[in-house]
């Protein structure tokens, strides 16, 4: 049971990191392009990026929490 819990936690954290990485990469890439094109819109673009990163990372955080719960209860 302990070994299965480790595998489950590892899969959860791995997929969470994958999701966060891909999501953040897309968001930051588009934002950097936008800021490079129009530096005067930096404030607006940063705000949108800030909200986007937060929403993208919400579910991976839950994934990591579930991984730690599985490890703790095993």
């Amino acid at each position: 049971m302990g070994a299965l819990a480790l595998v489950a936690a590892a899969i959860a954290v791995g997929l969470a990191a994958l999701g966060a990485g891909i999501g953040n990469g897309l968001i930051v890439g588009r934002t950097v392009e936008g800021i490079a094109r129009q530096p005067e819109l930096r404030g607006t673009l940063q705000t949108t990026m800030f909200i986007g990163i937060a929403l993208v990372e919400a579910l991976p955080i839950i994934g990591v929490v579930i991984a730690f719960i599985v490890l703790g209860k095993a």
């Binding site: 954290v13 969470a16 990191a17 966060a20 990485g21 953040n24 930051v28 934002t31 950097v32 800021i35 490079a36 530096p39 930096r42 673009l45 940063q46 990026m49 990163i53 990372e57 991976p60 955080i61 839950i62 990591v64 929490v65 991984a67 730690f68």
Partner: peptide, 24 residues
């Protein structure tokens, strides 16, 4: 990151790992 783009510098991380581990 915004400052780095303006001044054409690099940013290594966005701190995602620390935020994920805070949840943990």
């Amino acid at each position: 990151l915004g400052q780095a783009v303006i001044h054409k510098k690099k940013v290594k991380t966005l701190g995602s790992l620390s935020r994920l581990l805070m949840g943990g």
